[in-house]
Computed example of a mutant assay.
Amino acid sequence: MSGYLKPLVVTLAVALLATLLLSTVGQSLWQSLVTDIIQQQRTLHRGLANAMMALSRRESAGDWLDLMALSMGYGVFHALGPGHGKAVVATYLLTHRAALTRGLIMTACAALLQGVVAIVMVTVLVLGFGWLTREAMASTAWVEKASFVAVTALGLWLMIRAGRGLQTLKAEVARRPSPADTMSPAALRLTPVQRSGASIMTPLHHVSNGPCHCGRVHHIDPMASGRHWREMTAAIFSIGLRPCSGAVMVLGVAAMLGFWWAGVLAVLAMSVGTALSTSLLAALTVLARARMAHLFQRADTRRPLGLGYILALLGGALITLLGIALLINAPDASLSPLMRGPL
Results as ranks from 00 to 15, higher is better:
L16I: 13
L17V: 14
A18H: 09
L20I: 11
L21Y: 11
L21V: 14
L22W: 12
S23M: 05
S23H: 10
V25W: 11
G26S: 07
Q27V: 08
S28P: 03
Q31M: 07
Q31Y: 08
S32A: 14
L33Y: 10
L33M: 13
L33A: 15
L33P: 00
V34W: 02
T35S: 14
I37W: 13
I37Q: 13
I38K: 13
Q40I: 12
Q41D: 07
Q41I: 11
Q41G: 06
R42V: 08
R42Q: 14
T43R: 12
T43K: 10
T43F: 09
L44G: 05
L44F: 08
H45A: 08
R46P: 01
R46L: 11
R46I: 07
L48V: 01
L48H: 03
A49S: 11
N50E: 13
A51I: 00
M53N: 14
M53Y: 06
L55I: 01
L55E: 08
L55K: 09
R57H: 15
R57G: 08
R58L: 12
E59N: 15
S60L: 02
S60D: 11
S60G: 11
A61H: 13
A61W: 15
G62Y: 02
G62S: 14
G62E: 12
D63L: 03
D63A: 14
W64Q: 10
L65N: 09
D66Y: 07
D66E: 15
L67C: 06
L67K: 06
L67T: 06
M68G: 13
M68P: 02
M68V: 15
A69S: 13
L70P: 00
L70C: 05
L70S: 08
S71I: 08
S71V: 05
G73D: 01
Y74K: 05
Y74G: 10
Y74M: 09
G75Q: 01
G75M: 03
G75V: 04
G75I: 03
V76F: 01
V76G: 00
H78A: 03
H78Y: 00
H78Q: 00
H78T: 00
A79I: 06
L80V: 02
L80H: 04
L80Y: 00
G81Y: 00
G81A: 15
G83F: 01
H84E: 03
H84Y: 04
G85V: 06
G85N: 04
V88Q: 04
V88F: 00
V88S: 04
Y92D: 05
L93M: 06
L94E: 04
T95A: 05
T95H: 10
T95N: 02
T95G: 05
T95L: 07
R97Y: 06
A99C: 08
A99S: 15
L100G: 02
T101K: 11
T101H: 09
R102S: 11
R102D: 06
R102M: 05
L104C: 09
L104M: 12
L104W: 01
L104R: 06
L104T: 05
M106E: 10
M106A: 11
T107E: 01
T107I: 04
T107K: 09
A108T: 14
A108P: 02
A108N: 07
C109D: 03
A111H: 05
L113S: 07
Q114D: 02
Q114S: 09
G115C: 08
G115N: 04
V117L: 03
V117W: 03
V117A: 02
V117M: 04
A118E: 08
A118F: 07
I119L: 12
I119M: 15
I119N: 01
V120N: 05
V120G: 02
